[in-house]
Design a protein around this nucleic acid. Structure first.
Length: 168
DNA sequence: GCCAACGTTGGC
DNA sequence: GCCAACGTTGGC
């Protein structure tokens, strides 16, 4: 029996802090620091093998190129307690979290595919598949959001990127 | 740097 | 439970 097809997501990160090239460099990264309940709940729905568009937010002032999708990451470990919530020295420390009752979760992701160039938000906005996405609605600040298969495919195609067909 | 939009906090 | 104040996000 074939494995279940992957779900698709979009993960936002500021490239000045941690961009797609950083993910490639480290090979694998715990996606910690998410402190929004809706985003956390999406993290908890992720399954190993799910594919995530890696989105560079707030990128105008960086050398990473425009704001937009830089590549694809893959979920390699499903949700477990975010380590930073227990660290008093961290900006993401949450005094209301205990190891018995952790409030925040993270997944581990690994690089799967670098786009030839960042696919700008400006272009994403023009794709019919993306009209309904919260990403292109102004005022949406969600840092983890679901993406449809159609949106995922349209993004890859427009970016000129190819994933092995079995992965999509 | 600006500022609109939004989530969270806390007084009541 | 309401809601004003506040802090943050993130495009521009």
């Amino acid at each position: 029996m074939p494995p279940a097809p992957p779900q698709h997501w979009l993960l936002k990160s500021e490239p000045d802090v941690f961009g797609y090239p950083d993910l490639v460099r480290v090979g694998r990264e715990p996606w910690n620091g998410v402190r929004n309940y809706q985003a956390r709940n999406f993290l908890r729905e992720m399954l190993a093998g799910d594919l995530c568009l890696f989105y560079h937010s707030n990128a105008r002032t960086s050398r990473a190129g425009p704001t937009g999708v830089a590549g694809v990451a893959q979920v390699v470990r499903e949700a477990y307690p975010d380590n930073l919530q227990f660290d008093p020295a961290s900006a993401y420390f949450d005094p209301k979290s205990t190891p018995d009752h952790p409030r925040w979760s993270m997944v581990d992701v690994a690089p799967a595919l670098a786009f030839p160039a960042v696919l700008p938000l400006e272009v994403l906005r023009t794709l019919p598949e993306w009209q309904a996405s919260p990403l292109v609605r102004r005022g949406t600040r969600l840092s983890v959001l679901p993406v449809t298969k159609e949106q995922f495919r349209a993004a890859l195609e427009t970016a000129g990127a190819r994933l092995h067909v079995d992965l999509v």
